[in-house]
């Protein structure tokens, strides 16, 4: 197992290198530079600015000096916000996005698992359809529609919850978490429904029933554990997806998270911030995919022996 993890980590290095290289040159070739604005920048001023940001160096040497700094863990200063380093910005944005992501996953698990199990008990019934439809709202409606709708209902009509912010006013974390969680609830519901359907037809469930165990014990104790296996395997990629896809939620609710930094950086041509976020998120995605592989291998005895033997 350790060797498996180590070799996967080693393989991650060339992957990261490719991601970095592609992004680096992609953003440099985007039309418009970091200092372009409504007012044309005087050429002499532009020269001074480029010198301060090392943009006057040849592109390749900029690339290698970026890699050099990266190895030392220095992502450089932000282009758009000169007083701030990219490390600092990521440090400020990531915990918030991560918190949002964790709550969203919890919401997704709660809604998705309930709906999935509920509908698996009686497939193709009205109950199945209704619970699956509810769970699927998040993937049948763009988040930039669901978010404002929830705000309108709970923030403006009912005045129960704040309309924006994160950790600012009490209760302001509820709506963003629900909105983001709704997207993933659908997948969780789908997976747990499928998982449960499969498990419920297995021999050992029949055995358990034959032994005369109460049905809810059979389902909750035996069925649920195995039925949730695909959900667990899904959590890693889901969390990684949430981290890079939380932009819409962060924008609608004006949350100061990493997703918002990232997309705004792309629009601002904040070269260093784009690179920093890319490296950081790509690393996270790789790690989470690895974690979820390890976890599902660990939970699945058949695969575990395979890995152990490698």
């Amino acid at each position: 197992m350790l060797r498996f993890i180590l070799s996967r980590l080693l393989q991650a290095i060339p992957v990261l290198l490719v991601v970095i290289t592609v992004t680096f040159f992609l953003v440099r070739f985007a039309p418009g530079g970091p200092f372009d604005g409504e007012r044309k920048v005087d050429p002499s001023v532009l020269k001074a600015l480029e010198a301060q940001y090392n943009l006057d160096q040849p592109l390749m040497s900029q690339y290698f000096s970026f890699l050099g700094d990266l190895v030392q863990g220095d992502l450089g200063p932000s282009f758009k916000y000169p007083g701030r380093s990219v490390n600092e910005l990521i440090g400020a944005g990531f915990p918030i996005t991560a918190e949002l992501g964790i709550y969203a996953i919890l919401v997704a698990l709660l809604i998705g698992a309930i709906a999935g199990v509920f509908s698996a008990l009686k497939p193709n019934s009205a109950r199945d359809y209704i619970s699956m439809s509810t769970a699927m709202i998040g993937i049948c409606m763009p988040a930039f529609l669901l978010g404002p709708l929830l705000i309108l209902i709970f923030g403006i009509w009912l005045e129960w919850l704040p309309v924006s912010g994160w950790g600012d006013l009490p209760g302001d974390k509820i709506l963003p978490s629900v909105t983001l969680g709704a997207v993933y609830a659908a997948y969780v519901a789908r997976l747990s429904r499928g998982g449960m359907l499969e498990v419920l037809s297995q021999d050992y469930i029949r055995t358990a029933r034959a032994k005369g165990l109460p049905e809810h014990v059979v389902i909750l104790k035996h069925g649920l554990r195995a039925g949730m296996l695909p959900v667990v395997a899904y959590l890693g990629p889901a969390f990684a997806g949430i981290l890079s896809g939380s932009f819409v939620i962060e924008s609608v609710f004006q949350i100061q998270g990493l997703g918002r930094f990232y997309v705004l950086a792309a629009f601002n041509r904040d070269y260093t911030l784009i690179m920093g976020c890319t490296v950081f998120l790509a690393t996270l995605i790789i790690v989470f995919n690895l974690l979820s592989d390890v976890l599902s291998a660990y939970l699945n005895p058949r695969l575990r022996s395979q890995l152990g033997g490698k």
């Binding site: 709660l110 309930i114 199990v117 509920f118 008990l121 009686k122 109950r127 709970f154 009912l158 005045e159 129960w160 919850l161 704040p162 009490p170 209760g171 509820i174 109460p214 049905e215 809810h216 389902i219 909750l220």
Partner: peptide
């Protein structure tokens, strides 16, 4: 029949959740 027992459990859980959320909301604002 047994399954419907589970449903009532689940239903209760959902109801509890809804109540918690509403209470939270009302208290907080």
């Amino acid at each position: 029949i047994k399954a419907s027992l589970i449903h009532t459990h689940l239903k209760q859980a959902v109801r509890l959740l809804l109540i918690t959320v509403s209470v939270l909301a009302i208290v907080s604002c």
